[in-house]
Design a protein around this nucleic acid. Structure first.
Length: 481
RNA sequence: GGCCCAUUCGUCUAUCGGUUAGGACGUCAGAUUUUCAUUCUGAAAAGAGGAGUUCGACUCUCCUAUGGGCUACCA
C-alpha cells in the first residue's frame, strides 16, 4: 500500500522569496495536488544568525499571492507540528542522543583552532574523527566540565553509497568522500542536514523537492535515515535557475525575487506560469497554463537536468498574454492598485487610457513611459513630423494643421467615430492620404513618436479642449520656429 | 585540488538509435492596420570536441573541454 503523497516547502526566513525558491515550492505544490496529497510549509530557522525580521510573514504573503495554499504549516497547524524548527529543538536533541547511543554519532569537543589545523594544502577541511575515539569516561568528564560540544555524524569510510533521484537517476558516491557532518550545533540547534531528516520523517514527507546543490550531501542524509531505520523518501532534485550561463540567480545581485516582479507590474499567475516552464516541459506545445492546469499537466518526468537561464523577455511576453485577457475594467483596477498611475495627471480619461494601454504593454510598469505624453508635451522635437512611412513632414504639418483645427473645433460630437470621420473627410478634401493626416494630428496632439493609440483616440483621451489647445501650440511652434 | 551534476538555435525546450533535428520567446523581412502595438505569413538560427559501440547516433559508452554545485557549528 502506497503512502499518501506529502511534499513540503521548507524555506529559511532569511529574506524575500527568490525565484528559485518559488519554483521549488511550485513543483512541490503541483506534485502534491496532482497526486491528491498534502503540501506542507515548514520554517527552517535553525541558523539564528541569519534570521531576518518579518521574513516569515513575507513567506506567507508570497505563497498566498502565488496561490500556493499549504495544508499544514505554522500558521494553519496540522498533525505533525510544530512546523517551525526553532520550536522543535528538544526533538532534535532526543534523536541525536539516540544516534549517539547507537554509535552512529558522537560528541565532539574540538575547538575551532584544532579544526583549523585540519585544513589541508588545498584549503579543504576534513574532520579526523578525533573525538570518536574518546572513551565513555572522557566524554562524560568533558560534558560535566561544561566544555562546548557538538554532535557529529559517524560516517563509515569504506564502501559506496548509491541513491536514486527522480530527476538525475542513480548516483553513487564513495563513502570516503563523505564527512562527519555536525548534526547538533554547540548552541543546541540542529544543522540543516539533521533537522531536515528528522522533520521530513516525522512529518511523513514522501517526496523531497529541493535544489540540486543537495545532490552531493544526499548520501549523508540516507545514512541518517538508515541509522534510524526510517524509510528514505523519494528525492526530486531540481536544476538551478541561472541569471546567465555562469551565474545562479541570486538575491544578492539585486533583482530576481518574486516581490520585485510583482512590483514591476507582472501578474502572479504569469510569473508562476513562466517559472513552471523553466526546467520543466509539459510535453505539449501549449505554454500558457493556469495554476490548475499546471496541476493537471505536472509530471516529474518532464523536469530537465540542466540549469535554465531566466529570460525576462519571455516573461514579459507571457505577462502580456495575461494582460490581454484581462477586461478593460480588470486592467484598470490592476493599474490603479500599482504605483504606475501615480504620476499621471487625472485630467484624462483614465479608464479609457487603461483600455488603450491593454494590448500595448507587457507589464504594468510600462505604463509611465507609454503615458508620458499626457504630462510632458512642451518642447518635443518638431522633427517627429518628418516621417517617410506616412509621407509626412514638418512643412506639411504647418500647412495642414490650421485646417484640422478649423474642422475639429466646431465639432460637437467628440467621439472617436466622429473624429475619425471628420479627419477622413478632411484628408479627402485636401487630397492627402489618411495616413499623412493622421500622423500629423497624432504628433501635434501628443508630441510623442509612440502613443497608445491613433490620432482620433488620442484626441478623445485628452479631451476636446486640451486636444485643440495642443494643436494650436504645435502650430505656433512651427510657425515661430 | 577532490567528488557530484550538466552540455541541442541568442534564450526556454522537443527528439528517449533511423526526423528535411520540431515548437516558443527574441531577431529580421513581408502583409493587414488609425501612429505605435496587436494580428497574420515567412526567413535566418542548434546537437561542445574526439574516440568507440552499431547497418545507422543528438540519442548508448569512454576521454577531453567548458559550465555549475558540494567540499561550514549556512541552508
Amino acid at each position: 500500500m502506497t503512502r499518501t503523497v506529502r511534499t513540503r516547502f521548507a524555506p529559511s526566513p532569511t529574506g524575500f522569496m527568490h525565484i528559485g525558491n518559488l519554483r521549488t515550492a511550485l513543483y512541490a505544490y503541483l506534485f502534491a495536488r496532482k497526486n491528491h496529497g498534502q503540501f506542507i510549509l515548514r520554517i527552517e530557522d535553525t541558523d539564528r544568525e541569519r534570521l531576518v525580521e518579518n521574513a516569515v510573514e513575507a513567506i506567507y504573503a508570497t505563497l498566498n499571492l502565488a496561490g500556493l495554499r499549504h495544508d499544514e504549516g505554522p500558521d494553519v497547524g496540522g498533525c505533525c507540528g510544530p512546523y517551525t524548527q526553532s520550536e522543535r529543538k528538544h526533538i532534535y536533541a532526543k534523536y541525536a542522543q539516540e544516534l549517539v547511543s547507537a554509535s552512529h554519532a558522537y560528541y565532539c569537543f574540538c575547538t575551532k583552532e584544532r579544526l583549523d589545523t585540519l585544513t589541508d594544502e588545498t584549503g579543504n577541511r576534513r574532520y579526523d574523527k578525533h573525538c570518536l575515539h574518546l572513551s565513555r569516561e572522557e566524554v562524560a568528564e568533558k560534558l560535566a566540565s561544561g566544555a562546548p560540544w557538538v554532535i557529529r555524524q559517524n560516517v563509515p569510510q569504506e564502501g559506496v553509497t548509491t541513491f536514486s533521484d527522480m530527476v538525475y537517476g542513480e548516483i553513487s558516491v564513495e563513502n570516503r568522500e563523505l564527512h562527519d557532518n555536525v548534526l547538533l550545533k554547540s548552541d543546541g540547534f540542529p544543522t540543516y542536514n539533521f533537522a531536515n531528516v528528522v522533520d521530513d520523517h516525522l512529518m511523513e514527507i514522501t517526496h523531497v523537492f529541493r535544489g540540486m546543490e543537495y545532490l552531493s550531501s544526499t548520501p549523508n542524509y540516507n545514512m541518517l535515515y538508515e541509522a534510524f531505520g526510517w524509510e528514505i523518501p523519494r528525492y526530486v532534485h531540481l536544476p538551478h535557475i541561472m541569471k546567465d550561463k555562469q551565474h545562479k540567480l541570486s538575491k544578492r545581485h539585486g533583482d530576481a525575487n518574486f516581490e520585485d516582479f510583482i512590483a514591476k507590474g507582472f501578474l502572479p499567475e504569469a510569473i508562476l506560469n513562466y517559472v513552471a516552464l523553466l526546467g520543466w516541459n509539459p510535453k505539449t506545445e501549449v505554454e500558457k497554463f493556469s495554476l490548475q492546469e499546471l496541476v493537471e499537466a505536472f509530471d516529474v518526468s518532464g523536469i530537465s537536468k540542466s540549469s535554465a537561464v531566466f529570460d525576462e523577455v519571455k516573461l514579459r511576453w507571457l505577462n502580456a498574454q495575461y494582460l490581454k485577457e484581462l477586461s478593460p475594467q480588470q486592467l484598470h483596477a490592476h493599474a490603479l492598485a500599482t504605483p504606475h498611475y501615480g504620476a499621471i495627471s487625472t485630467s484624462v480619461n483614465l479608464p479609457l487610457l487603461s483600455e488603450l494601454l491593454r494590448p500595448r504593454i507587457s507589464a504594468l510598469s510600462d505604463i509611465p513611459d507609454a503615458a508620458k505624453f499626457i504630462d510632458s508635451f512642451d518642447g518635443y522635437s518638431l522633427s517627429l513630423f518628418d516621417h517617410a512611412g506616412s509621407k509626412s513632414s514638418v512643412q506639411l504639418a504647418k500647412e495642414t494643421l490650421p485646417a484640422v483645427i478649423a474642422a475639429l473645433e466646431p465639432l460637437a460630437d467628440w467621439s472617436n467615430d466622429a473624429l475619425f470621420a471628420a479627419l477622413e473627410q478632411l484628408a479627402a478634401q485636401r487630397d492627402l492620404k489618411k495616413k499623412q493626416l493622421l500622423w500629423i494630428v497624432r504628433i501635434a496632439v501628443t508630441g510623442h513618436l509612440s502613443t497608445p493609440g491613433g490620432a482620433s483616440e488620442m484626441c478623445v483621451l485628452l479631451g476636446k479642449e486640451q486636444a485643440i489647445e495642443r494643436m494650436k501650440l504645435s502650430l505656433e511652434r512651427m510657425v515661430n520656429g
